[in-house]
């Protein structure tokens, strides 16, 4: 096969579903440059009005936290329940707190 697309970089696509919401990751696609990545993203992820704004980011530019989604990196947060409002006891009948 000639002209394989093996060399086209991978892009991560983020879609803002509507005004007031943040962009969320929708998936990835291959494209030779940013402009075509945007056009491909429109055709691939917003064929039914699923978005009002798109971001495309070279997948190679993403720095990720760690190779394991359950890494000790996040463990320090697990033993700090006092960071949550439910940790605290409040006298009966006190309101707006």
């Amino acid at each position: 096969m000639s002209g394989g697309d093996a060399d086209w970089p991978l892009w991560e696509v983020f879609v803002r579903p509507r005004r007031g919401l943040a962009h969320t990751h929708a998936g990835s696609l291959h494209a030779p440059d940013a402009e075509l990545a945007l056009r491909n993203a429109r055709d691939l992820f917003t064929r039914r009005g699923e978005g009002v704004s798109l971001w495309v980011v070279p997948a190679a530019a993403v720095t990720a936290s760690s190779p394991d989604e359950r890494d000790p990196f996040f463990r320090p947060a697990a033993d700090k329940p006092y960071r949550h409002p439910t940790f605290y006891e409040v006298p009966e009948g006190v309101r707006h707190l």
Binding site: P9, D33, A34, L36, A37, P58, A61
Partner: peptide, 10 residues
């Protein structure tokens, strides 16, 4: 894309 590297993925 090779001619217009500004739009290309780094």
């Amino acid at each position: 894309a090779a001619k217009h590297p500004a739009g290309a993925a780094r």
